[in-house]
Amino acid sequence: MTGRRAGRLLAVLVLVLIMVGPLYLMVTNAFKSQHDILTEPFGWPTSGFSLKYLHAALTSPDFNVVRAYGVTVLFVVAVNVLNLLIVGPASYAIARGTRRYHRAVMLVLLAGLFIPGQTLVIPVIYVLKALGLIGTIPGFLLFETTLTVPTTVFLFVAFVQTVPRELDEAARIDGASRYGTFWRVIFPLMRPVAATAMVLNSAGVWTDFVNPQFILGPQSGVYTVTTGVYAAISRLSTNYTVVYPNILLATAPVIVFYVFMQRRIIGGLTAGAIKG
């Protein structure tokens, strides 16, 4: 019995070490000089502690972190708003629909579920080029929103089907239009499933690299956190006084946000994956 406990403890210890180790290196080395990083990478930065490198990364002409954060947050918000506006009413119509075309629309919308976004990049560039939207923010947001449609439709339709139809009837008798019924009666009930969708979509947009890199492109001058970090440190990847501070700046706010929202984020992902 005690052997079992010891084994458990050891496993937890190893787990903590491999998960915390990289974070420790990221935080401590962001405050050290190149020399200190190379001689004592695992050391605590007491002697050579300096905010210089973090400051340099914050004010770097190559990559404006604050701006990149602003841009990425705006993209996340825009995709979520577009996603709810576009997918919400459609999911309602599909869930309440009884005709064959409702099923057909559902199947078309779910088609993207198994198609990885990266394999679509080349033909999507072709389409957006034809529309004059390649390298533009609207083009990028449209494609990014489209990629969120399949999962969200799946989650929303399944949820609306559990909402009793009597609510619709009551709203209709009170004179509500179909949009009115959806936004005022059904949508407020969808808060948990909308939260799930928003968690999945936000994480998808936040960590996305391929689309901002290839659809938006560096020539647009618009960088997200991922493409910005890539542009800032891929050329200088052995100058650790640039690498660690940049990684810290790209990670710390997200991790803080995640720690505060962890219940929602983990719960959202779980709900999404189990239903999906």
Binding site: V87, G112, V127, L142, T146, P150, V153
Partner: peptide, 11 residues
């Protein structure tokens, strides 16, 4: 709206 997006940018 979602049908146009999925048709235009996935299908």
């Amino acid at each position: 709206p979602p049908l146009i997006l999925v048709a235009g940018l996935i299908i």
